[in-house]
Design a protein around this nucleic acid. Sequence first.
DNA 1: TAAGTATTTTAGAATCATTCTAATTTGTAT
DNA 2: ATACAAATTAGAATGATTCTAAAATACTTA
Lengths: 121, 121
Amino acid sequence: MTKYEKEIYNIITDSTGHLTVEQIYLELKKKCPKVVLATVYNNVNKLWKAGRIRKISVENMQDRYDRVIKHDHLICQKCGRLADILLEDLTASLRGQMGEEFLFYDLKIFYICPDCRKKDL
Amino acid sequence: MTKYEKEIYNIITDSTGHLTVEQIYLELKKKCPKVVLATVYNNVNKLWKAGRIRKISVENMQDRYDRVIKHDHLICQKCGRLADILLEDLTASLRGQMGEEFLFYDLKIFYICPDCRKKDL
DNA sequence: TAAGTATTTTAGAATCATTCTAATTTGTAT
DNA sequence: ATACAAATTAGAATGATTCTAAAATACTTA
């Protein structure tokens, strides 16, 4: 792992924040003011291809990056905020339903987050 | 529904193809050669906001559009091809696990499609 | 250590998908 | 037919991402 690769990896795994490339870039700049956005793209792609970080795509939102620890995601319908949730593992059930070709799954739950609920009152 | 809205809606619901905006545009052009890409974007967004079509976002792929009939998706890890699959409904289980705030879910299964399997041999 | 090679990073241009703006067209109601 | 609202168009603008070529850094081996 190169210097920036490691820094970027740490930013992603230390944060619970589901960061966008832009946010990673701003965070990294605090430590390395000279870094350039393309470097973040390069390394984030490299890390993702190597399976060391997770990419989260949601309709109409920028991609966000996350640790690879097994968990599902809650997405707020109103504001798009992302939160982690640990739900029952579906692997066995899915493998049962569809057989060996199964690789892995991605489960997203949509809801209205507490903040948006408050605003609605 | 306006003329184009209806046409676009039909193209999406008639097809099993999980079409991209570009593909919808090309299909629509066969019937209406004068139509413009922005019109497809406008109407696809309108339809999506109205809940009449489904948008499917997958990491590193263009958004695709689909019927709203309840089903899950298989995504090929190699070529990105999308297929429908009907799996056990998780609504009850999820509502049980997380309560009333649950709205709906999106489940994607990753696998290697038959075509890519063949190529691998 | 020095030279040579490979890899990473940079800077900025290029690309691609998507949105926006303003003008035009179409449709509808009066 | 006239007036008004909504839809469509054309093309510019934006935003995210990738690409390219040059510069910097790291790595290897003589």
